[in-house]
């Protein structure tokens, strides 16, 4: 959701708008310091999120400008963390702005010594073909006892506590529709 500027400057009430422009302060000349916030949050969009690390579920506010995250800090209204964050939560800006993020599909052929970049349009059909080939080759409509089992034991999946609930549910649907039984995630290691 978009939150108002007051969610960040929660205690600021009326003066916040004035303060952000740097006006309205009587400063002695020698001791005058810029009143603008170091980060230009005034023009930023603000969305709430939940920290992606541990299971406490702390609320955070994300400030973004021109499609870039410029600031992430604790959501003061969130009843669990009340604006606070641990060192990992406080570092999320560097997850959103990180040159090491994966930005292209990469493929490593059998016995190759290097990655090669692929487009999604190239990669998705390649993966689909491999899934189908393995599934077709390993699918069991009945097991050795003669019972109907309609499954493949030739494909396994792990994942994931890093997915959203809706994605988890969709993923289990995808896997079970394909007949996978080897399904696991972080809860069992």
């Amino acid at each position: 959701m978009l939150v108002t500027r007051r969610d960040f400057l929660k205690t600021s009430a009326v003066t916040a708008g004035v303060a952000i422009t740097g006006m309205g302060f009587a400063l002695a000349p020698v001791e005058a310091h810029a009143a603008e916030l170091r980060k230009d949050l005034g023009e930023a969009t603000q969305t709430t999120t939940i920290c992606p690390y541990c299971g406490v579920g702390c609320g955070l506010v994300v400030h973004a400008s021109d499609g870039k995250v410029i600031n992430i800090e604790g959501d003061s209204e969130h009843p669990i963390n009340q604006g606070t964050a641990c060192s990992k939560g406080a570092s999320l800006y560097q997850m959103a702005n990180n040159d090491n993020r994966l930005t292209t599909v990469r493929y490593r052929a059998a016995n190759a010594t290097e990655w090669q970049d692929l487009s999604w349009d190239e990669a998705i059909p390649m993966i689909a073909q491999r899934v189908k080939a393995t599934r077709d080759a390993t699918f069991e409509e009945t097991n050795t006892a003669g019972n109907t089992v309609n499954r493949t034991l030739g494909i396994g999946s792990l994942g994931s506590a890093a997915l959203d609930n809706e994605e988890c549910w969709l993923y289990q649907k995808f896997l079970r529709a394909m007949g996978l039984v080897y399904i696991g995630h972080q809860a069992r290691n």
């Binding site: 400057l9 003066t15 009143a35 916030l37 800090e73 963390n81 604006g83 641990c86």
Partner: peptide, 18 residues
């Protein structure tokens, strides 16, 4: 974090401290 303090927000460290 005097910029924050001037805008009625506490310093970043104080806000974050769990």
């Amino acid at each position: 974090c005097y910029d924050r303090v001037h805008n009625d927000e506490v310093p970043a460290c104080a806000k974050a401290c769990p």
